[in-house]
Design a protein around this nucleic acid. Structure first.
Lengths: 206, 206
DNA sequence: CAACTTCAGTACCGTTCGGTACCGAACAAT
DNA sequence: ATTGTTCGGTACCGAACGGTACTGAAGTTG
């Protein structure tokens, strides 16, 4: 949550008559549902309730709008990531992470799946920058998990022969798979079970 | 492999001067790499080495070309699915399935990832039919796994309290996650480890 | 009020999209 | 040889793309 910095250069002139934060939220949903390339400016601006001109003035261009929408996604629907990382034990981290992935990917009233996965996996020339941003974001997320597991090893929370790198990649893999499943129509309860199954035997992980 | 049915209406007239099978293979790679919407007709036909006119005459239109490319993908790079399902035990099925997913998603000289996952997760209006075809394909794949696990339960190969539906969804989830990871640049060895980890404790599955 | 700035909107930019009409040439069957 | 069909290639279609110039109105500051 919180106001997104839209960097108004001055306080002069006629003030903006739409809520930039609200508009960004609408754009986020469109990107979430249709991906970067699949979301046209017409789709975006009509969902945002503003004209193309206003969008360009407020957000720069389509790519910047996407970046800001992603930031907002990270702070909003995907805030479960940061919350999960703050849990006291590694087991709880994984539990919260996968639970968050399931719930965010299957939230009623929101698009099914995860923006960072379906926003752009494959892309033509035009969508490549957006794809790279999403790859970087997922990498960052994985690095956080890895660091968290390293700490857990140091603290004796995980067995000393645990491979934090591998464990982080495994958890990310399951989370990404959950997003794909959700995009394909899988329901929350079914994915909840999948997440449980993925964790059930996680303790003996070495 | 095998000739793709391109349905020549008659033997009359000048024969085709390009190899339709070869051309379809090239198109498959482009779709694999760029997705349905991301692959333009120009991208496709220039990779296929033919003109737009020839493409339309031979394959119908972009959507049909995609369908045929998907069929070819299923018979070629994704043939590991059928092979895995034919293994004698459920454990071997899962092993072969996940190994195949890793190898196909990280094959040198081929696009990273899985066509059915990144071909179209999210889509604008134009890409929706392609997306639905891919969803159906993944569903079909999952149903095959489920049926195979049901059989394994009947045969006593899996514990009688196993949930084949859940197990199939779990395996598909991991496979899909692997494809996403591969599309994000993960290497074969790393994903190989992830697949091992996903299977390591699979035996006590109930 | 006057000066300025930004508003929302329209019309339009050049480009690319998927898809077609038409072409003369090439080949097969009669 | 004639007829019929398809070839590969060019030129083009209307529509949609991302993005911009220009407009008169609206609002803030001096």
């Amino acid at each position: 949550m919180g106001a997104v910095d839209v960097t108004r250069k001055s306080a002069l002139g006629r003030p903006r008559s739409f809520d930039a934060d609200e508009a960004l939220g609408r754009a986020m949903v469109v990107f979430w549902e249709q991906g970067y390339e699949g979301a046209s400016l017409t789709d975006l601006t009509s969902a945002m309730g503003i004209t193309k001109t206003s969008m360009y003035a407020a957000f720069g261009n389509k790519e910047e709008l996407f970046r800001k929408a992603l930031r907002r996604y990270a702070e909003g629907p995907a805030s479960y990531v940061a919350e999960a990382l703050a849990r006291p034990t590694a087991l709880e981290v994984v539990e919260a992470f996968l639970t968050g992935a399931v719930e965010t990917s299957t939230r009623p009233g929101c698009p099914a799946g995860c923006l960072s996965v379906q926003g752009s996996l494959a892309a033509g020339e035009a969508g490549r920058p957006a794809r790279d941003v999403l790859i970087a974001w997922r990498e960052e997320c994985r690095a956080y998990l890895r660091d968290r597991f390293r700490r857990a090893v140091d603290e004796g929370d995980l067995p000393p022969d645990t491979d934090p790198e591998l464990l982080a990649r495994y958890v990310m893999t399951v989370a990404n798979g959950i997003a794909v499943q959700a995009a394909g129509g899988a329901g929350r309860d079914e994915l909840r079970q999948v997440a449980d199954l993925a964790m059930r035997n996680w303790q003996p992980v070495r």
